[in-house]
């Protein structure tokens, strides 16, 4: 077992199993994963900051068993920031907060390829910072159908003076975020709004959209998963890798890019690999920055 020590932010971190291929047959080792997160850290950290992290660990690579962990592993250094939450069942749980590069690297040394966070911060678990429309293509639908739905949604939201930001899911779907960043926001309100939007889209585009989770409705359509607007739910973080055949990233897109891809019918443009993610983030910075800062209010009709 290989082992090397790196020093980050004055902390010494032992890194293990660096040569382990986590994405066979593509060929992307744990060293590559660590390098990806180190390079993407300048843009991903603000999106993880102060949010309870859910780990999805693939110690033996994407083809083998993985561990879904909401708890912060017990063997953790004292400097690691954590928060104690009380779950619905009354059970106490200590979670990791990834607020700096050293924590990110520590987490990735556990082979947590995917990083999932809730829409709320640990100190205010009942206050969503944004609304999410999780666009999930059913069997027979693809990411271009999601792009169509996202563009329609964008138009509808603009009618309501709400700006939205879109990212790829890193799998087949798209995630559209509507920032709120207001203390008064509640999940009840965001869920009600997102469900109503999903229902209205379904009525207007019955062949393209469904607001219902059941498989029979989803075939050939895009499911607008409004139920993600819940305190108990998490979304894959923007810039997180996804566990799949290739190291694809959940990456933000400009609306122009989405329009172009939709017009050209080119789904490949909507799949961003690790190297492209690092290059694009280096060039244009964090396209998702406003999701954390833009203050918007949900109108009350």
């Amino acid at each position: 077992m290989s082992r090397s020590i790196v020093e980050i932010g004055g902390r010494r971190l032992p890194l293990t199993n660096l040569e382990k291929d986590l994405y066979p047959p593509y060929g992307f080792t744990k060293a590559h994963v660590l390098d990806y997160y180190r390079r993407i850290a300048p843009v991903i950290l603000s999106h993880l900051k102060d949010r309870p992290l859910t780990l999805k660990r693939y110690p033996d690579g994407v083809e083998k068993d993985y561990f879904f962990e909401k708890r912060c592993p017990g063997h953790r250094p004292a400097w690691l920031k954590t928060a104690d939450l009380v779950r619905d069942g009354g059970e106490r749980m200590t979670v990791c907060l990834v607020n700096d590069l050293e924590t990110l690297i520590w987490v990735e040394n556990l082979a947590s390829l995917e990083l999932h966070v809730p829409l709320a911060k640990a100190v205010s678990p009942k206050t969503p910072d944004s609304i999410v429309f999780d666009l999930d293509p059913g069997e027979g639908a693809n990411v271009l159908d999601c792009a169509r739905v996202a563009l329609i949604l964008r138009g509808l939201l603009l009618e309501w003076r709400l700006a939205g930001f879109v990212k790829t899911s890193g799998r087949k779907g798209l995630h559209l975020y509507v920032p709120l960043n207001r203390k008064e926001a509640t999940f009840d309100e965001t869920k009600r709004f997102s469900k109503a939007v999903a229902v209205v889209l379904e009525k207007n585009y019955p062949d393209l959209v469904t607001s219902r989770m059941a498989k029979e409705f989803r075939k050939g359509r895009v499911f607008i998963n409004w139920s993600q607007n819940d305190a108990s739910k998490t979304m894959v973080s923007v810039y997180s890798l996804r566990a799949g055949e290739k190291p694809v990233v959940s990456f933000p897109l400009s609306w122009r890019e989405l329009e172009n891809a939709s017009e050209r019918g080119d789904p490949d443009k909507l799949r961003v690999l690790h190297s492209e993610a690092v290059r694009r983030a280096g060039k244009s910075g964090d396209l998702f920055r406003q999701v954390l800062t833009k203050k918007q209010r949900l109108p009350h009709p």
């Binding site: 509808l156 009618e159 309501w160 009600r192 709004f193 469900k195 109503a196 939007v197 229902v199 209205v200 889209l201 009525k203 207007n204 009709p301």
Partner: peptide, 14 residues
């Protein structure tokens, strides 16, 4: 589906 007035307002925008 949600509050009727919200649905109606969204439908109008749509």
């Amino acid at each position: 589906e949600g509050p009727a007035d919200l649905i109606a307002a969204l439908q109008k925008s749509m």
